[in-house]
């Protein structure tokens, strides 16, 4: 059981309330948003998920090296033609990089990465030596 709090409103919510009519030309930039990141551990693997909306598969690299997982991604900014203009833009474009120190040895050969609906899922199976073992007491 976990105690969780519901969404805590912050100042940007108040601005949002003021700027409901965002289709009208309003040029207020929202503060930076973090890409959602989560880690899930089970007995035999570690699952890392990272939100990468708007990033093409070819613009993502996943590296496992020397006990670290590094994810890099590039979100390209749409190029507008002369007849188009930005009305509002809160998205973060450019390069994203995140490195995570792995808490135990992983089986590098068996690491898989899937990018689906803007969500990257990396599954890192534990190396045999890192798996929990039950020892029979004699």
């Amino acid at each position: 059981m976990l105690v969780r709090f519901r969404h805590v409103p912050d100042i940007t919510d108040h601005f949002d309330a003021l700027l409901r009519n965002t289709i009208l030309p309003v040029t207020v930039e929202r503060t930076q948003r973090n890409n959602g990141f989560s880690l899930r551990e089970s007995n035999d693997q570690l699952t890392v998920t990272l939100e990468l909306p708007g990033v093409a598969k070819n613009d993502i690299t996943v590296n496992v090296r020397e006990g670290h997982l590094t994810i890099t991604a590039e979100r390209k900014r749409p190029e507008l033609n002369e007849q188009e203009q930005w009305i509002r833009n809160e998205m973060n474009y450019g390069t994203y990089e995140r490195t995570l120190r792995l808490p135990y040895a992983v089986d590098v050969e068996k690491v898989t990465a899937v990018h689906e609906n803007g969500l990257l899922t990396v599954v890192l199976p534990k190396h045999e030596i890192a798996k929990p073992k039950q020892i029979t007491v004699r």
Binding site: T22, I23, R30, R33, G36, E51, L52, P53, G54, P78, L80, Q83, E84, Q85, W86, I87, R88, N89, E90, M91, N92, N117, G118, L119
Partner: peptide
């Protein structure tokens, strides 16, 4: 997060919903 682009005959409203 939203981005809105206006072209001469439409608005493109994009939202990040990963």
């Amino acid at each position: 997060a939203v981005s809105i682009i206006e072209s001469k005959d439409a608005y493109l409203v994009s939202l990040d919903i990963p």
